[in-house]
Design a protein around this nucleic acid. Structure first.
Lengths: 206, 206
DNA sequence: CCATACATACCAACTGGTTGGTATGTATGT
DNA sequence: ACATACATACCAACCAGTTGGTATGTATGG
């Protein structure tokens, strides 16, 4: 097999673009094949159905973004709060270019599929909350280190950060402009800073 | 005309449900007619195309939700910050029942249409930011009253609140459970409280 | 008061193009 | 020789939109 599996990965990459451009439902199998430069025979050789491609696209997205965030520099900070704030700054810096370039495949896809395709929904949930999980430890460590007494959990703040990002993408799509998304991420950063510096919740360690 | 316009309003109401259940693209004209109990002839009598129904559905959604929020009790509070926090609590209380009952028509629709149907996108933007606009004055008044020195605007905080809500809907759809959305709205409430009580930003008025 | 003229509100059947999916071919590497 | 990796050709169902029609208004003139 000379260039084996080329078609499958080209189809998956095409899916990541097309889902962000027009959504899962409006994306046709012909669209996918044209974008990938293959024929329908190739598509159905690798995927039993369009639904199955949806699941594979969510998993592919997890792999691609997982690698991106894994090698991001914010992990190098010594202070856990700096790592959390570094993550938010990293997300803010990603908000550039055209809308399909910075928006989220699984966030878009789950909106259309949650009621009709449980397998796609679960794959999207795994992607979103799996990514949120990479934040939880840093948040928890920051809470411990700063002696934070909180009525919220590290897990819920990690999930909230994903909510802000997903919502920011929606506002950007509605306004057809990235600025409103950037401002929302800056509110998220300010929130985290306030959480960890407000005297009512922080007990100074000596 | 005894029951004139009945078909049109039934079609618009059907659209609000169907868009939240399966999205705009996956919703067919036949779906709409079946749900509304009318025929395709009636549909195309009132709407030139499915796109045009999308625009009308966004406007209908603005009217329906506009009336809901206009008569909500949080406006009665004397203190502007209490009105803002009352709004957030009102939104939190709406997070009940099945997912299509509390999620947002225009937030869902704009994700699928922003690139292909500019008119629908603009109608969705008008709905989202029009609603955000009803918050801006209360936020601005609260800032003035508390002598808040901020590097953010009332408008951006109003928009951010919509981002949090839209993102919370996405997380709820992914998890197929409302709890995660509620927690995110509680983070939003906490953020607003911190913004207006943190000593670094508030100059006490005597 | 009423007949003519026309508009509005809707329906049932149909159409051409699109859709996801299949059946069958063929080239290539092992 | 045989499995893998595709391409070609095709189908049945479905899709948005059209057509031709009916039933019920409502405005106007005599």
């Amino acid at each position: 097999m000379p260039k084996a599996r080329a078609a499958k990965e080209k189809l998956l990459d095409a899916a990541l673009s097309l889902i962000r451009e027009k959504g899962f439902s409006a994306m046709t199998v012909d669209d996918l094949c044209a974008r990938a430069g293959v024929t329908k025979g190739a598509f159905f050789h690798y995927f039993k159905s369009k639904d199955e491609l949806g699941v594979a696209a969510a998993e592919h997205w997890s792999a691609v973004t997982g690698a991106l965030f894994e090698r991001a520099p914010y992990h190098d900070a010594e202070d856990p709060l700096d790592r959390v704030l570094g993550y938010i700054e990293f997300r803010r810096a990603l908000l550039r270019g055209d809308i399909p370039e910075f928006t989220c495949v699984v966030g878009t896809m789950v909106q259309e599929t949650y009621g009709q395709y449980p397998q796609i929904r679960d794959a999207c949930a795994a992607s979103i909350f799996g990514h949120a999980g990479t934040l939880t430890d840093d948040i928890a460590e920051a809470m411990t280190k700063r002696g934070l007494v909180a009525d919220w959990t590290a897990e819920s703040l990690a999930a909230h950060s994903q909510a802000v990002l997903q919502g920011a993408f929606i506002l950007a799509k509605a306004k057809n402009e990235v600025g409103v998304a950037i401002e929302s991420v800056e509110h998220l950063r300010r929130y985290v800073e306030l959480l960890f510096t407000h005297p009512s919740t922080v007990e100074k360690k000596q």
